[in-house]
């Protein structure tokens, strides 16, 4: 097999994801004049930043063969905490942002601590965390609470060269995660831990540190997502973040990341995020009942997992 055909074969499914995005855009532009406008497209990209920021964090965890089910709840808590801390006062912005990020990082490190030191499974730890964080949020409030400062709120609609700055921000996060995974020792070790834990341990890779890293970053990005939501809503709304973890996991998997760890690319995950976001947007543009959205996502998810499953012959060749 030549390296080139090999490359195509390995990435063909990601190409499929991007082609589907293209198909959605085409369908959208046929059915609605409003769809293929710069305004709508950049809006969709801005929407994608919300799911995407969380999904990139989730991807890091999944690459180590772990999972984080708590990010939706953490986003919810982050929105509330940041809104309460900011309380409409511009002087509080730095403090609120700083503490919210610290909260996120702390939650992630705690997850890693429980997984590392108590030998609990990531599923159990973050599943419990999902309910605990949600419980805390709903104890704080069941109605919108707190207020964003005006400047902070304005960031949502601010544009640079006709493109919302949130899109640039998301681009930056994407580049940073890609850099981390491809150019740093940490990134290589993330793949190794998920690819073969025993080999990683025998090769002297600090597995526990890697876990602190990925869970920390994942929760940190969830807190960032929470701040982005505050920018958008202007208040701490406890409705935010519902089922976000599920959408993030779906995006990561559609993008070709293996739920068993060790395999996955940033390009793929971004493709998955775009596919989901455009699906949602198209359904809105077409005026389809929003409940259909879940159905469509579920179908895409199953199809993706089935497609990415290595064929039997491939498994035998590598066994």
């Amino acid at each position: 097999m030549t390296p080139k055909s090999n490359f195509l074969q390995k990435h063909s499914l990601i190409l499929v994801v991007y082609s589907l995005v293209f198909v959605l855009i085409t369908v959208g532009s046929i059915y609605s004049e409003r769809f293929l406008t710069l305004r709508n497209l950049t809006n969709v990209l801005r929407q994608a930043a919300y799911l995407g920021t969380a999904a990139l964090g989730e991807m890091l965890v999944i690459l180590t063969a772990g999972i984080d089910l708590s990010i939706g709840s953490l986003v919810k808590l982050s929105v509330l905490v940041s809104a309460i801390l900011m309380d409409g006062n511009p002087d509080n912005v730095m403090m609120a942002v700083g503490l919210t990020l610290a909260l996120g990082l702390g939650v992630g490190l705690l997850h890693a601590f429980l997984i590392n030191e108590l030998n609990l499974s990531p599923f159990v730890v973050t599943f419990a965390s999902l309910f605990i964080l949600q419980g805390i949020s709903l104890t704080i409030t069941t109605k919108p609470i707190g207020r964003s400062s005006k400047d902070f709120l304005l960031l949502y609609s601010q544009k640079f060269l006709e493109v919302p700055i949130i899109v640039y921000f998301f681009g930056l996060v994407t580049l940073m995660v890609a850099f981390l995974l491809n150019m740093t020792v940490f990134g290589k070790h993330v793949y190794a831990v998920g690819g073969n834990l025993t080999v990683a341990e025998l090769s002297g890779i600090p597995v526990k540190k890697i876990r602190y890293g990925v869970y920390g970053i994942c929760s940190l990005l969830a807190a960032v997502t929470g701040l982005l939501w505050l920018m958008r809503m202007g208040v701490g709304d406890p409705v935010i973040g519902k089922e976000l973890e599920l959408n993030a996991i779906i995006a990561v998997v559609i993008g070709g990341t293996s739920l068993f760890g060790g395999r996955g690319t940033v390009t793929g995950v971004i493709g998955g995020v775009l596919l989901l976001t455009f699906t949602d947007n198209l359904l809105v543009v077409l005026g389809v009942n929003q409940f259909v959205s879940g159905l469509v996502k579920g179908l895409i998810f199953v199809a993706a997992v089935a497609l990415y499953k290595p064929s039997e012959s491939f498994q035998r060749a590598t066994a």
């Binding site: 940490f186 793949y191 690819g195 090769s203 890779i205 060790g262």
Partner: peptide, 23 residues
């Protein structure tokens, strides 16, 4: 003792990667 998802270079230097600067 190899990570099958990683390439040849990455496997040879796994755990002892050559670094340019920190990390």
């Amino acid at each position: 003792a190899l990570v099958s998802e990683m390439n040849v270079v990455e496997n040879i230097f796994l755990g002892r990667e050559i670094r340019m600067t920190v990390g």
